[in-house]
Structures are given as structure tokens and as C-alpha cells.
Design a protein around this nucleic acid. Structure first.
Lengths: 229, 229
DNA sequence: CACCCAATCCGACAAAAGTCGTAGCGATTC
DNA sequence: GAATCGCTACGACTTTTGTCGGATTGGGTG
């Protein structure tokens, strides 16, 4: 994970789905303004309350965006992996980050600082629309998370997560996706998640060990997730 | 609440904080494209899953944006009152509404349909930035809601709500803000909310009756809200 | 006024979630 | 191989939340 040469940044950005469809020349202009940052696992990219940020694009690795309670419990709002862009709120000077970003493993990010973006926006309304579309995605995702937390039990939430993540039957967990991490994602604690996993396993709906979770009975799981019948 | 004459729409829009700072001529152009809609209390403005919407501005009345569970429980994402604009997601054809909008009382809305907005966006990047700033606000608000639901008890959430809403000591409730409504806002059920209100009242922190809630001990309430000490 | 209806309140109970202590298991390190 | 560390598992317990039946209140209506 060494610093990619300048003349390859453009190519990099074009592979980011976020920027697909944008003019190649404009993208290269963007690339020239991006800065490269490497982080160790568990490093803080930015803190809730900070205002001095911009837009981030993940080159390699994984980042989680979280909120903390005073007593240290954490709620994951979202994970971001290679090719994804986050922190749209960093575009606005008037608003501080609503959450904290932390790396989950050794991670490399591109950063487009607010000040470098402003002129581009005026020149390239298309870019603005892309960013807006991403924000719309964030809003929909968060609204779904709110509904999940408020309206469904841990078991239902877990079933939904498994159905979503393990579209292909077996879900091989990233090394960093521990039960504690999954619990923070689902808005609960490791113990409760462990119980829920066992309940689903005992019911014959899934099978799991330390590195992967297999869906054995998708229709049954859909039912537990209150998405069917 | 009769249909305002066309030549006053412009003036109306200028009073919407959302559009403050935009060029007056552009606003009048916007006004000419808006359509006027009236709703009875409890009417559905749009449903989760619909895609045929646009941007709404509240002229008079109140609207709530909610998610439902299969068994009918509801979680309020946000309330919108006079002068506020909502449903930014309606701008994107590719995305269906993530939630349902319902009126709380007799309500009048302006609607700017997607198709009428698109050309304006190209001509007026400023307008885009305004919409984006509002989306940033939605994201921050939802992130806060997620953290609240996941990390705090009902009592803490209630204390926070009271501190936020009743900045001036006494909070006179809108007629529609029943305990059931407040419960849906806090992500719980009326019974539990009633208990939490009683607990705070018994502790001498608040006083409440059917039409208003008074904060008696702000520092004490701040402590309950885990925002102090 | 009598009536009705929605909102609120209450107590008892059930379910879900969180806490705690302990124990086992695996991979890594020494 | 032994020691260690992080992750996972499990059982017992507490707290929080949700549910239910029924009582009470208060405003509006006929």
C-alpha cells in the first residue's frame, strides 16, 4: 500500500462507482486535487464535532462511521469499503460531523478537501448531482436503520442483516467483523447477538462458526425477518 | 385556507427560510411552477415506496414523516411545520420514498415536481446547494435519532426531547402532539411514555397536564438526559 | 345535562434486552 | 509446547420495555 503515482489517481477515481459517468477530463482534474492518507487499524479518520474535513473516497480497506454514548457503547451507522465515498457533510463548512469515522483495518483514503471542491461544483453541476444522489442514499439508509432499531427485535434485525449481506447463501465475514462489531451494527451488545445467532442456528435457519455464516433456510429466515408471510 | 393568488406565490416562497438568499427573480420563476395542495388531518401526502413525487414546502399546518412496522407501530422520523421543505429524495427518479408523509392537521403544501425542478438546477447551482444543505441537515438529524434510539433509554430520550423543544421553560403542545404521537416520535408506546413523564414529574423535574409541559428543574433534567455532569 | 369518544392513567404481567461472572476455544507469540 | 490474548459461549440475574384489561378524565355533541 504505497502511495500511487500522481498520474494514476485519475484512473483510480474512474474506478470509483461514485464517479462513473462523469467526464474523464474533469475526473483527472479532481484527482490532481485529492490527497492520499494511510491509517492503521482502529485509527480515527475524523471525530464527531469536527468541522475541518471534506469528502473521502476509500482506496483500500474499511471504515466505519459510528456514534458513541457517554458510557462507551457504540452504534455503527454504516461501513464503507473500497470504491465508496463518504462524509458528504464535510462539504458544508457550517456543519460539524454528526459522527466519528474509524478504520477497521489498514486503510488508504483519498481526501478531497472542501476548499478544493467548491470551485469544481460551480463548474460541474453534474458532480453536485452525484454527491446529492449519494446523500439521498445515506438518508434512505439511515431512515431504514431508525425503523429497524425502533420497530424490530434484535433477532429480526439480525435475520434482515444476514439476508441482505449474505445474498449468496454463505457470508464469509471480514476479519474485523467480530460479534462485537456486528452487535454495534445491530444496536445491541455481543451477548445478545450471540444468543440471537444461537436461536437462529437452533431453529435450523443458519449455521455459523468463527469465520462464516451460512443461510440454510432462506424462506424460514425471511419469515423471521418479517419480510415474508 | 383558500388558494393564494398566483402573484403572491413568489412572496410566499421568499418567506420560506429554505430559499432565503436566493435571487428574487429566480424565486418567482420557481413560484410559477409550484402547485398548491390542501389536505385534511391525517391525510397521506405520499407513501413509502412511491416514486412519483417532488419537493414539498409547508405553507400552513404540520406534516409527519414516518415508518411503519407490519403490525402497525409507527416511528416518526421528523415533523415539518410552516416554512419547512421536505422530501428531497423526491428529486431523484431512481429512488422511491423511504418513508410515508402524513398530515397532522388541516394542511396546505406547495409542491415542486421533479420534472419542473430539473431545468432549474442546471440554471441555478445555488438552488442545488440549498437543497444539499437541507439534506445534510436530514442526515445529521437521522444520525442523532439512530444514536438516541440505540444508546439511550426512553426516559433519557424524553428528557432530551423536552430540553430541545421546550427551550423556553414551558412547552405548549400542539393539539396534535398527543402522548401517542410523542411516543411514536421517541420510538416507544404511549404507556411507557406516560410512565416516563410520571417519573420525571415525581422527581420534581417537570410538571405537565393535557396541554403543556413545564420544565421545573433544567439542570436536573440535563442530568437525566445525560447531557450534564 | 347526558352521552360519547378519545386521551390518559394505572397496576400487573410478559417479553426483550442488558449485565455479570465464568469458562472454553483458537490463533499467535514466546 | 506453553503462555497469552482476544473472541466466543453460557447461565443466572436485573432492568427496561412492551402488553393488557380496565378505570378515569375532559371536551365536545346531541
Amino acid at each position: 500500500m504505497t502511495h500511487p503515482p500522481r498520474d494514476r489517481l485519475c484512473e483510480h477515481l474512474q474506478r470509483v462507482p461514485y464517479f462513473a459517468g462523469l467526464d474523464a477530463g474533469d475526473l483527472c482534474q479532481l484527482a490532481g486535487l485529492a490527497t492520499w492518507h494511510e491509517y492503521a487499524p482502529g485509527a480515527i479518520v475524523f471525530l464527531e464535532g469536527d468541522i475541518n474535513t471534506g469528502l473521502y473516497a476509500v482506496d483500500a480497506g474499511w471504515v466505519k462511521v459510528v456514534k458513541f454514548s457517554l458510557d462507551g457503547r457504540e452504534q455503527v451507522l454504516r461501513y464503507f469499503g473500497p470504491g465508496e465515498v463518504f462524509s458528504e457533510i464535510g462539504i458544508f463548512l457550517a456543519r460539524s460531523n454528526p459522527a466519528t469515522a474509524i478504520t477497521l483495518e489498514r486503510t488508504a483514503l483519498w481526501r478531497l478537501h472542501r476548499s478544493t471542491l467548491q470551485p469544481l461544483f460551480s463548474a460541474q453541476p453534474d458532480l453536485l448531482l452525484h454527491v446529492m444522489a449519494n446523500m439521498a442514499d445515506r438518508i434512505a439508509h439511515l431512515a431504514e436503520l431508525v425503523a429497524d432499531l425502533s420497530l424490530h427485535t434484535v433477532e429480526v434485525r439480525l435475520a434482515r442483516l444476514l439476508l441482505e449481506a449474505g445474498a449468496g447463501g454463505t457470508l464469509t465475514r471480514q476479519a474485523w467483523l467480530t460479534q462485537a462489531e456486528m452487535a454495534a451494527r445491530l444496536g445491541t451488545v455481543p451477548d445478545v447477538l450471540s444468543r440471537a445467532l444461537r436461536t437462529l442456528a437452533d431453529a435450523g435457519l443458519i449455521r455459523f462458526d468463527r469465520r462464516q455464516i451460512t443461510i440454510l433456510d432462506r424462506p424460514g429466515l425471511l419469515q423471521r425477518a418479517q419480510l415474508a408471510l
